[in-house]
Nucleic acid binder design. Structure first.
Lengths: 358, 358
DNA sequence: ATGAAAGCGCTAACAG
DNA sequence: CTGTTAGCGCTTTCAT
């Protein structure tokens, strides 16, 4: 038995009276082994409760069956779901996933990448707004890379992202269809690429509708409940306040809803509110929040598929792919009230609510 | 240069005109190296952009600097936060964390553990209600183990858990203090250990208050929004419905709140509602939900500290520890309305709300 | 159908 | 202060 007390392949070989080569081949089926021998080896493996040392294996085959997931914060709902999706894709291939949160700190991120460079077969990275220098070490090491929510294109890596422009545009259209004409947009101060694209989409939709986008209707605030609340309060001070507000995230939208309630406004009658992401909270607030969904788990799953493709094909000769998930409206109660025709098509609860509103 | 194109320690040694031993010691500082030599080696390392191969290192030192986190579902808020806490504890020590979701499937869990057994230095495991057989392979392999939220004690592993009994008891006391006397408890169908302990705590508190705990006031439902809603609807059908409801999780509590609203009940005047966990949603619903907090991130962090301790001390001779986090009440608006004295001590928003209620 | 032996890249005795 | 060398446990040529 190996010194440490752990059973090694040589222990199995000895006890089975065969060479380690044979044991290895029984396990890998990479060359035929006489049935009798095979049975014997398998029995000994059972007896000794032998399990191959994956680290030694990794070293020999130069493959770790692990990918590194580097995100700002694993406890943010988007990344959590993405992590789960990544797992979904990796498990069937026997791959694992090392998770690292960087708190959007560049130094932490750089360290994390350096540390993982020799421990993983590829990286899935997401950060607000990546620049080439951040990912260069990965490309230098010729390691497969997939970026989540990035704006920059390859070469050398794939991108999985959201149709943010379209998403912002659809959000605005949704408000327009409901008869709103003064539609505000509350966005985050630490502007991430996706947020900027959403604002652009919103602007474009208003343009197409022949509405000029007043600068005062697009305002920034902290990416938090409080931020959303303050932003709404500020919008209320305008000479002509908006009758609809689109917020760049659900959490800000919920903050805005609080502020609206405090101001005695009814939602959606006095002011309609929308968010982005379709986080769990969106369905739970009162009234339930209309939001543009982000299929975060799917993002992660797709990233997993892409990274596996790169790992298997060798990263060099793989054409960079850019996967864009379509925008999807989740219609709830925070944006009803104008289009009465909805009464016909709504599910029970929403209909009852509308009826109650008279 | 090593065959694969990657720079190895021998490449550095050759180019610096020293032995690999010296390079190794420059990196590890485990024995003195002449300053001149050191500088030279460091320069070459820089030039070649050499980074040690961690897999080879792991193999040599028999340590992977990785722990396996095995949970039912990483995208559940509790585990997400715990994962983050675990990371917090591991990063300073240069440790990483491989995450695996089992969907509470025993086979998946067993496979995950088997696969990771030789890749990690220890395990942090959480599952509804672990039994010895599930963790035996880990103990057999003499690997450090910490269980999250487990009911069973060591030996051979540490446990990090919540003061669930106390927590359930405090929840009930909170309701009692507010003058409620018919206090119901909605718990989950797939009863997990923590849930059972919470119910017991609730019973104990009512007993102490001299109230008999009517069996009909403790009911089970699916661990979901819908489950909570149905449970509340059922409670309403009782000859004498409760005026307070404690739910074993926030999500069920929020479901119950929906159902209460539908039934035309005011919260907390007609029925007070409490949850457990203090998930993000709890603060966001209307009215904001009073809940018993679970310091999930702290749980993870503590688990990290314990596992590192075991890894460093060698798991055998470490006395099993059981860390219990205290119960903590997060007072919000879903349980006000009885104790008028509160008006004096409440922060602005709650006070205003109370005032409005008259 | 099976084995012997050469490493994968690193660390740590042991030896100067 | 520095170097030589023997593995860690496995896979995989190359032989037989």
């Amino acid at each position: 038995m190996a010194s440490g007390g752990r059973v090694g392949i040589t222990d199995v070989a000895k006890r089975a009276g065969v060479s380690v080569t044979t044991v290895s081949h029984v396990l890998s089926s990479r060359r035929p082994v006489a049935e009798a021998t095979r049975q014997k080896v398998l029995r000994v493996i059972e007896e000794l409760d032998y399990r191959p040392n994956e680290v030694a294996r990794s070293m020999r085959v130069q493959r770790t069956s692990t990918v590194g997931l580097v995100v700002p914060n694993i406890s943010h709902p988007f990344y959590t779901a993405a992590a789960r999706g990544l797992e979904d894709a990796l498990r069937p291939e026997g791959y694992h996933c090392i998770v690292t949160s960087t708190d959007a700190d560049r130094d932490v991120e750089r360290d994390a990448v350096r540390q993982l460079l020799s421990r993983v077969d590829g990286f899935v990275i997401s950060g607000a707004d990546k620049r080439t220098e951040d990912i260069q070490p990965i490309l230098d090491a010729k390691l497969p890379l997939v970026m989540l929510g990035a704006d920059i294109p390859g070469p050398g890596f794939d991108v999985v992202t959201n149709a943010d422009f379209e998403s912002g545009s659809l959000a605005a259209q949704h408000m327009l269809e409901r008869g709103h004409r003064r539609i505000a947009f509350i966005t985050a101060e630490d502007d991430f690429a996706a947020g900027a694209r959403r604002v652009e989409g919103y602007r474009s939709a208003l343009d197409k509708a022949g509405l000029s986008t007043e600068a005062s209707l697009v305002i920034r605030a902290a990416a938090s409940l409080e931020g959303g609340a303050k932003a709404l309060a500020n919008l209320r001070k305008l000479a002509e306040p908006p009758d609809a507000v689109i917020c760049v995230s659900d959490v800000m939208a919920i903050g805005a809803m609080y502020a609206a309630r405090e101001a005695g406004l009814r939602i959606p009658e006095d002011v309609a509110v929308m968010g982005f992401d379709d986080t769990e909270a969106a369905a739970l607030v009162a009234p339930p929040l209309t939001t543009m969904a982000t299929a975060s788990r799917d993002h992660g799953r797709k990233a997993g598929e892409l990274i596996l493709r790169r790992i298997q094909d060798g990263t060099a000769d793989v054409e960079p792919q850019r996967v864009v998930f379509p925008a999807k409206l989740i219609q709830r109660e925070s944006t009803l009230g104008r289009w009465r025709g909805l009464l016909r098509v709504l599910p029970g609860r929403e209909r009852r609510l509308l009826a109650r509103l008279g």
